[in-house]
Design a protein around this nucleic acid. Structure first.
Lengths: 232, 232
DNA sequence: CTTCATCTGTGATGCCCGTCACACTAGATT
DNA sequence: AATCTAGTGTGACGGGCATCACAGATGAAG
């Protein structure tokens, strides 16, 4: 088992926990139960009423999705190590709004609601950081709604891909190796059209394929598409 | 000028401020500048970088909207007295994500960022309530994304209308007297189709028209549509 | 009352994109 | 290697919904 110091190092800099001081953080993490997840394993189920914990990802990857009417999957977000998910229901005690599952073998910490609240309360200065992080998420959701409403397929897929570019890799590799179906569920379009768009972009050398994986060659092009649509 | 007590009474029970104790609240409101808005007047502009305040509505109504590429308006929310808007940018100091304007003559308080943070810090117990409220908003945005992605026109419009039913009125009157264009921008569909759907619903006595205003006769029907789509 | 801007009703047109169908590919498993 | 399952490529089709066009209605302002 890792030491707590190692765990703390892993926390992403923009995590909901970044605002906590090391002593508070250590206290919080000590109360957390650690869990290993297999690929595809579900840690939070949409609709679940017992929502008294959040999940902190230590290693691997998580997928946040809703299975909506008609059986269609909507992927809201992908998470990497250090990120927190499940805090909406943990904070407002409502039913879980989404399902969280592992995209590969993963290690998570289960943070009990009360422990999280205690940690924040014991260090009031951290409140600002927590609120800031919650605000950042709201901002991102606003962008998604705008994107859904006004943009056609290409810009929406572009935005999804840009969000998935691995910041730790020098080449334009994507995180979490999404399939075309995943990209479709993430961007809100049919898998077949993902296929067609990717072929088109490969022609134009915007992307490249390495086996099944995508490499983004021209991130600026995709970013432009994501920001301004096909017109601009 | 009203007394502070009167102002405090006006705060909605689920406001971002509900968690503050009266002394803190009074302190906060005392630092706030009061402002009168004419119909259509803009109090927050999308893209604005000076985002160091939130807005608390005392009287009237506010519209939160984004003007997206292509000149299309997207209405994200309508607010009534006691509600707070503009807290995303206030908290994370990023540019304003949306424009806020008055749907009629309104009175607002401008809450300086620092004063809000001070108020929260001076009463740590309020933190839980503030976080809960932020979480509630995130939850609502999730629903909107789901709705946009999976539902056809009718359920989306139904959801928009249900959100606008005036809780203070016994009949099914709507708040803010939205035009068909407004309803379209709120639900994410073309104005012409709003017109067609409303006519259809009037036939079925789901709604009634009073001059230009809408009266909801069968809220359950609309709620069902909003929850389960046309299929269910 | 008249005028003018804004809102509303309704048909015609077209196209974006989801769905269906089916062949093909590539890792996984034995 | 043989098989199997999940993923991919591509055409054809059709429907839902945006857009265009214009007429009628309504109400605010003079």
């Amino acid at each position: 088992m890792d030491t707590l110091d190692e765990l703390i190092d892993k926390l992403a800099t923009d995590s909901l926990l970044k605002a906590l001081d090391p002593p508070q953080l250590e206290q919080l993490l000590r109360t957390a139960r650690r869990k290993e997840l297999a690929r595809g394993e579900v840690i939070i189920s949409q609709g679940d009423e017992e929502s008294d914990f959040a999940v902190c990802l230590l290693a691997g990857g998580l997928k946040v999705s809703m299975n909506s009417a008609g059986g269609r999957e909507i992927i809201l977000n992908y998470c990497g190590p250090g990120e927190i998910v499940g805090e909406i229901a943990m904070l407002d005690r409502g039913p879980r709004t989404a399902t969280v599952s592992a995209v590969g073998p993963s290690t998570v910490l289960l943070l009990p609601s009360q422990a999280f609240i205690d940690a924040v309360l014991s260090n009031p200065a951290s409140v600002v950081g927590v609120m800031r992080e919650l605000a950042r998420r709201a901002r991102q959701m606003n962008l998604i709604v705008e994107s859904d409403r006004t943009f056609s397929m290409a810009p929406r897929l572009a935005r999804a891909i840009v969000r998935l570019i691995d910041p730790d890799a020098d080449d334009g590799r994507l995180r979490h190796n999404p399939s075309q179906s995943d990209l479709g569920a993430f961007a809100g379009l049919a898998r077949e059209n993902v296929s067609r768009l990717l072929s088109e972009w490969e022609e134009q050398s915007v992307i490249r394929r390495q086996g099944r994986a995508l490499i983004v060659l021209n991130a600026d092009y995709l970013q432009d598409l994501a920001d301004f649509g096909d017109e601009g």
